[in-house]
Design a protein around this nucleic acid. Sequence first.
DNA 1: GTGGTCTAGACCACG
DNA 2: GTGGTCTAGACCACC
Lengths: 130, 130, 130, 130
Amino acid sequence: MLFDVQPSSPIPIYEQVLAQVIFAVASGELQVGEMIPSVRELAARLMVHPNTVAHAFKRLSELGVAVSRHGKGMEVTAEAPALCRARRQDIVRARIREALREAATSQLPAEDVRRLVEEELARVNGKAKG
Amino acid sequence: MLFDVQPSSPIPIYEQVLAQVIFAVASGELQVGEMIPSVRELAARLMVHPNTVAHAFKRLSELGVAVSRHGKGMEVTAEAPALCRARRQDIVRARIREALREAATSQLPAEDVRRLVEEELARVNGKAKG
Amino acid sequence: MLFDVQPSSPIPIYEQVLAQVIFAVASGELQVGEMIPSVRELAARLMVHPNTVAHAFKRLSELGVAVSRHGKGMEVTAEAPALCRARRQDIVRARIREALREAATSQLPAEDVRRLVEEELARVNGKAKG
Amino acid sequence: MLFDVQPSSPIPIYEQVLAQVIFAVASGELQVGEMIPSVRELAARLMVHPNTVAHAFKRLSELGVAVSRHGKGMEVTAEAPALCRARRQDIVRARIREALREAATSQLPAEDVRRLVEEELARVNGKAKG
DNA sequence: GTGGTCTAGACCACG
DNA sequence: GTGGTCTAGACCACC
């Protein structure tokens, strides 16, 4: 499970953590019944404050994606995969829609927008391979 | 010149105003030497506090897009079109990159991402035509 | 009498006009009893609003540098030369003091400050010749 | 780190704060990675409204001199020293140029100008030593 | 606790 | 009328 956060991003860190757990469940990396890394471990790995991770975990349980097992950690629920796949799609679609909506209001020619998308798509995929 | 802001957006209002003026100059809607709508007028139109618009205008002059003419208003500079076209591209590219980056980390299959982009592109174009 | 104003300067236009008249009297360009160019003429020459020139002229009469002759214009008073020479010195000294004071608080090495002064002195003199 | 502002100055308070932080970084008083005093602390020390200090801090992050760490404060960036040294030079040079430019248009003999500069330089250095 | 944004209304200088 | 600055105090997200 590759976790990393960008502290300088406008997206809050706890949301980045939240989204990444959701994405991990949606893709099957985290299986039902499996334990999510502990707050302390994850905080250490991401070099962020434990409170921040705890915040994300609280949201996870609110969403029904994971339940906390006293003394053991957070366990992925049975409903999680369906929930997370739906949510993943929503998140990604919303972000893309937002970006393209702004591109439209900028009156940047459609050709230029499409070119930018292709460039960034290649860039992102290239990075993923590297 | 259609200006509108979304108070609920995570993007600050003053940045939305800033971006829209930049877009207007980049697209030629606002010409060199022309006066930008006054703080008070724009504030009334957008139903936000004049200070918020003033904040955006101050940034405009810092960026060299407009100069304030005492007692007259803000005038679009000669360098503005070039500056704004470059900046518009940066803004749009940054948003697209952000969205696609998240899509990539979601491990959503590349095909699905591309399909989402095409859907949203069609939506936006359809709206523009309609 | 070379008059020019910099609209983008932080120094108000009316103060620039005021200072230049004072400097002209101090240097003898404008003699006692001579008529100062009219508000309209000066406004046209400087491409500024007549009100702005009028503002400067009002200050001139308040300072005792010139008196308005109904239907004729502003006339340089007998006390003007002495007043203006003193004031010129005050203005220039104050500005230089201010600039060097800031240089000191910046902790820029004294050598660098002196070098900057020399560079700018050469620059200004060079321009004056050109 | 001695901070002080002059409310009566034509230079806005937030710009004075901005310049002083830049000077502190340029001179090495504020080191890379170090935390800048908090908005509220600095506001109390300078006896100005926190918003005014916040305004200056926002500019700092826009300039890339410091990054805001959510809930922790503003941290001096790695690029800050170079940025600030360059900017310090610009600020000081601009003020000196402005002063000498006015001195030149005053037609005060070059000798007198140079004498004024030397007097003020001596004053400032004397103070620094004393 | 931290910084960031917004509303509100004051005052100023300039034209 | 214009833009610019400041104070004041609210609310928010984050740590």
